[in-house]
Write a protein that binds this DNA or RNA. Structure first.
Lengths: 160, 160
DNA sequence: TTCCCTGTTGACGTTGACGTAAGCGGGACT
DNA sequence: AGTCCCGCTTACGTCAACGTCAACAGGGAA
């Protein structure tokens, strides 16, 4: 009865997805409103398929890297339309390449920012070690955070 | 008369910085309003120092990696206050470490997103090569974009 | 002087991505 | 029967990060 939980035919309620990905129902409905998700319905209620869930994963990651919902939609549309509209696609191709460029630059920025934050942290630690050694042991929390890493395997499981 | 242009004693007008970094006067004044910049004044007019310029570079990069102006301000404040407020700083330390974690995750996200965009581009290219080979040569533009890369060396030149 | 350009300070408008509240329906306990 | 709880829709509110617009000042050039 508990087997086959990860099979493609499995479906999800809105709340299941929300708790899994720390989103809100409002957000998922909003994405639907904007055409990024189109879950099935059981009467009034939304029924999310495994494919919908995969799309949601892409949406959230897209957001994290700074894509707008609009841009994310364009990307998603490439996956469920294995068809024509070649004119629009030429435009998409260009936009995607530009996006790759900005993402690559963004990665450099992030590396730089990480380096600077590390430097700032060291400054702070030194300063604190000097002035207020009592406030230090927070370093333990850091490991906590590290271990609490989300393992979001978003390897894209959306079959055509 | 044109020498010494890069010396620390050099100053900038708002428009010079705007054109250099493709910002708008409104944005710089906004940052000032929020306490991220505090240029000197010549009468009414703002006079940006080399240090202000360095701060602006950090602001813009912070924005590109998704930091809020508020967060950026906290970081900047560490650099011009080599002083007390150790209590607040303990809090900052924690926040910075958390930020490092999210940035590291964000870098993973970006790598993933880049990979997927590459895949999408290949799909599009194949599709276009099939249906509309006439729309292809846009690939040349890509190189153009690559060469037009901004060389923003933001290596942090803000001496205390 | 007149014009134009760059600069200034408010004050209000806008956009994206939701949050929040109101009001309703349907199951599931109790 | 009552009362949660989940879900739905519709509509308005919010917040950040500016954009836009008005009205004004100072300084050069024609």
């Amino acid at each position: 009865m508990v087997m086959e939980l990860r099979r493609p035919e499995r479906t999800f309620t809105i709340r299941q997805l929300c708790t899994e990905f720390k989103a809100t129902p409002r957000a998922l409905r909003f994405y639907e409103d904007k055409g990024l998700l189109t879950p099935a319905r059981d009467g009034m209620n939304r029924v999310y398929s495994y494919k919908d869930r995969a799309r949601l994963i892409l949406i959230l990651r897209g957001k994290r890297v700074g894509l707008s919902l609009q841009e994310i939609r364009e990307i998603l549309e490439l996956y469920d339309e294995g068809d024509e509209a070649a004119h629009q696609n030429a435009h998409s191709l260009k936009k995607f390449r530009e996006k790759i460029v900005v993402l690559e630059r963004q990665r450099e920025d992030i590396d730089g920012a990480i380096a600077e934050l590390h430097a700032a942290c060291e400054r702070l630690e030194k300063h604190l070690a000097d002035k207020r050694p009592d406030l230090l042991p927070k370093a333990a929390d850091y490991d906590q955070v590290m271990r609490a890493r989300i393992d979001g395997h978003a390897e894209m499981a959306m079959g055509k």
